[in-house]
Amino acid sequence: MSGCDDRRAKQAMAALFEKGRDGLDADGFERLRAHLATCPECQETYTRLSRVESVLEQRALPQARSALLEQALFARLQPAPARPVVVAERKRWFSFPLLMPLSLGAAAAAVALLVVAPSLERREQGVPEWQARSSAPGEGAWGVRAFCIAPTGTVLAEARPGGTLACAEGNAVQFSYTAPERVRLSLEGLPQAGGEALRFFPSEGTAPEVAAGVDVPLPFSTPVQSGWLTGPVPVRARFSDAQGRTVADTQVTLTPR
């Protein structure tokens, strides 16, 4: 096994063992975890130290590690101010619990009316089913469209792939995608003013698989509030295969109204 020269990681492991939760703060624990993710040797050490602690405490999860994991968990649950897809914001927009599914339903229904109906119409005009939703019909089979939806469920505006959607504070942005086959999908916004990337879909984790379909609405809307949409936000939709290779890449730009 090759030696690891990261002394800070080793000191962090020793401090955790010697002093428990007093030996490492949340940031230190995160740094250690980041190092462990790339260092098999330190993983082995971490595991061996954990085993000693487990035997000492008669626990599967030593108390100090449990406490630090709890901190990491709550840090992860904490909504970042600039992130649009956060629980609290969605809860505020759909402030009435019963209204949430109704509002979502209304939004989805509105999208369906606006999107599915034209897609049927296009098919009648002889456009192939999988080539109806791009910015240049007939050229692309993959795409994402964005809709600005009022709290009542009314669609106020829409943008095709490559287009721009203007949406005012108080409304919500809803995306739909078109994919000719089952694929992994991620939507990420990159504010031109800089700052953290905005993850529209999924809100956490790796890109999930989505079913093939035409203008399939994503399962949730993103409220425009708390100042995340103050300038142009290009949203990149990336379709990738099971191996992570990009199948298609498209973009919609969001702007404040």
């Binding site: 030696g3 040797e41 050490t45």
Partner: peptide, 25 residues
């Protein structure tokens, strides 16, 4: 705990730690 760490090291349980940089042990 510090002594235990050193003890485990001396007994080879944590022998993988015995590399350059493990000065705290």
């Amino acid at each position: 705990k510090s002594r235990l760490l050193g003890f485990l090291q001396s007994k080879g349980y944590l022998e993988d730690l015995e590399t350059q940089g493990w000065s705290f042990f």
